[in-house]
Design a protein around this nucleic acid. Sequence first.
DNA 1: GAATACATGTAATGCGTTACATGATTTA
DNA 2: TAAATCATGTAACGCATTACATGTATTC
Lengths: 189, 189
Amino acid sequence: MAAPLGMAILGLLAPSPLTGYELSRTLAGAISHFWQMRHSQVYPELARLEQAGLVFHERLPQQGKPDQKRYAITEAGRAQLREWLASPLEARPKRSEIALRAFCVAQGRLPEMADFFQAQAEGHRRRLAGFETERDALEALPAGVRDDPRSLVFASHAVLMRGLLFEQASATWCTWLAARLRKAAAAPG
Amino acid sequence: MAAPLGMAILGLLAPSPLTGYELSRTLAGAISHFWQMRHSQVYPELARLEQAGLVFHERLPQQGKPDQKRYAITEAGRAQLREWLASPLEARPKRSEIALRAFCVAQGRLPEMADFFQAQAEGHRRRLAGFETERDALEALPAGVRDDPRSLVFASHAVLMRGLLFEQASATWCTWLAARLRKAAAAPG
DNA sequence: GAATACATGTAATGCGTTACATGATTTA
DNA sequence: TAAATCATGTAACGCATTACATGTATTC
C-alpha cells in the first residue's frame, strides 16, 4: 500500500495521539504548505488505518458533543511509517499551470504577460521574505535543539528551507521571464 | 470556466491543427515535464471545447483506420486562451511527498534517511546536468530567434529555465538535509 | 442575534489514471 | 509471431474537494 494520505496521518500521530478534528486543525497549520486534507478525508482514512491495525482509538464521552475519539499510532503503524519514509520515491513530474502559461506566452499580449510574471515574482518574493524571517528565528535557537533530528524544530527547519529555496527559484525565474518579455515588447517589430 | 485542461489543448492547437492522437503524442514530449494528460481525457475534452465553439474539426477518411479528426482552434478559442493567459492565478500550495517525508524524519532511521535524501539529490543533479546541456544548446542559437517571444525556442527556453532552477533548488535542499542528517547520525547520542 | 469553535460523520461532484474495446499496418 | 504505431473512443476506479447534515457552547 504505502498511500501517502495514510502516512501523513501516521506521521502526525507519531509524536502524540490526536482526534480527527485536531488532525484537520494541525493540517491547516505549517504542514499545509506541502500537505492538505479535509476532515471528510481524515475520518474515513482513520477508520481504514484502524482496520489495518496501524492506529487505535479510545472513546472519551463528552456532554453536548459527539464522543471524542482520540487516535494513537500502534507499533505496527510506526514500523509501516518507518518503512515508507526511506522507500523509493518515484519522481513523477507535477502539473504546473504557470509553466503552461509560459509555454503558451506567444498567444498572449506581451506587455500584459510581462506584467503577469512580474506580479507573480512579487508574490514569491513576499513569501520568501516571510520564510527568511522564520528561518532566522529558527537558526537563532540553541544548536542543541536545532540540530537534533528528533526535534520538531529540526523538521520545521527542514521543510521551511525547502519552501524558501523554492520561492527563491520561482522569484528568480518569474523576474527573468518578465524582463525578457518586457525587453521584447519594447523592441522594434 | 478557464479550466487549465482545456487551455492546455488550446495552447497546443494554437500554432497548428492536430488530431487527438497527435495531441497525446505532443503531450508526451517536452511539455510532459509540467503537463500530462492521457488520450482518454483528450478526446472528451476536444468534444467539450468544440461544443463551446473554441475548436472545430475536419474529418479525413482513411483506409483501415478510423477517420482522422483534425482539430483547429477558432477565433473565440484564441480569445479565450489570451484571456486565460494573464488572468489571476491562485497560488494554492501543492502536495509534496518528499517534504512530508522530511517533516516525519524523526520517525525514521537516521543513516537510512541520510542515504535517501542523498540519493534524491543525485537524481536532481543528474536531471540538472541534462537541462544545462539543453540550455547551452538553446543559448547558442542566434539572438534573433531566441529573443522572439513568438518563437517556439523562446517558449522552450522559458520552461527549460524553470525546470533547471527547480532541479537546482531541489538538489541544494536534499544535499543540505542529507548532510545535516549524516552529521547528527555520526554525533554521540 | 450572528458567527465561530468544537466534534463527527456522509454524499455528491469533479478530475485523473487505468483498464477495456476494436482493428489495420508496420517493424523486429 | 510478437510487438509497436496509428487511431478513436468508453467505462471503471481512486482520490480530493465541496456540500450536506446535526447539535452545543462560547464569543462578539
